[in-house]
């Protein structure tokens, strides 16, 4: 599934974008399937906004974003749900876990959302072990530290099939060691699916072999 941006300009950032060159805003951009894409952006340039546009939960832009050759606006609610279960997964910057569920239930929710789960339930524990969060699986998500929440959100995103994984500063609260483990797991899962990802971050990093890097 190819994702294309055509002259996309966020309405709230319109004036600022005119003053500053950008590789993404107001350009024709196509993310090819399977690409590892890095989008580097200083604060306030619309990083999170872009991820929300790409995942189609924010619509205050001019221009067009197409997924699989079809503009986001033309997708119905049911089709969007199917795409979010099968084709596009996400790690939000604000993580968005359910506080009333345990860490494990948060992940399980995503696993069984699809009627035919991609992975058996045992996979949750396996990934948790890799990222060192097994001990918090039974805890309410509300009681976890930000770093733990971040890793739970990453595992949740990996529980489903996808062609694209959107990540908004996924390692912001992880130390070097944990970031390396998480990056390794993400890379391994993407390759297993022949999937690409779009990762936004403030700075350069060496976590992945990025095929393309954009400056926002």
């Amino acid at each position: 599934m190819q994702i294309e941006l055509s002259a996309v300009v966020p309405v709230p950032l319109r004036d600022r974008i005119r003053q500053r060159p950008s590789d993404i805003w107001d350009r024709e951009v196509a993310f090819q399937p399977g690409q590892f894409v890095k989008i580097k952006a200083p604060s306030g340039t619309g990083k999170t906004t872009l991820v929300h546009y790409l995942y189609n939960i924010r619509y205050d832009y001019t221009g067009t974003i197409k997924a699989g050759g079809k503009p986001w606006r033309d997708y119905s609610a049911a089709q969007l749900a199917a795409i979010r279960q099968e084709n596009i997964s996400v790690v939000f910057q604000d993580l968005r876990l359910f506080d009333q569920l345990t860490a494990e239930e948060n992940i399980e929710l995503k696993r069984v959302m699809n009627n035919k789960p991609l992975y058996p339930a045992g996979k949750i524990r396996e990934f948790a072990e890799q990222l060192g969060v097994t001990h918090v699986l039974g805890q309410s998500a509300a009681t976890l530290s930000y770093g733990e929440r971040q890793r739970i959100a990453i595992i949740r995103a990996l529980m489903q099939p996808f062609q694209w994984l959107m990540m908004d500063e996924p390692f912001s609260h992880l130390d070097e060691g944990n970031t390396a483990k998480a990056a390794q797991l993400i890379g391994q899962e993407c390759r297993a699916r022949n999937a690409g990802f779009i990762l936004t971050d403030l700075d350069h990093d060496q976590h992945f072999n990025y095929e393309v890097t954009y400056q926002l």
Binding site: Y55, I57, A77, A78, A81, A82, I83, R84, Q85, R96, F98, Q100, L109, K110, M113, Q160
Partner: peptide
């Protein structure tokens, strides 16, 4: 809020 998040994560509104 929860319903919005469920749908954001891919739950079909019909479901």
């Amino acid at each position: 809020k929860e319903i919005r998040l469920l749908v954001t994560l891919g739950t079909a509104p019909k479901r």
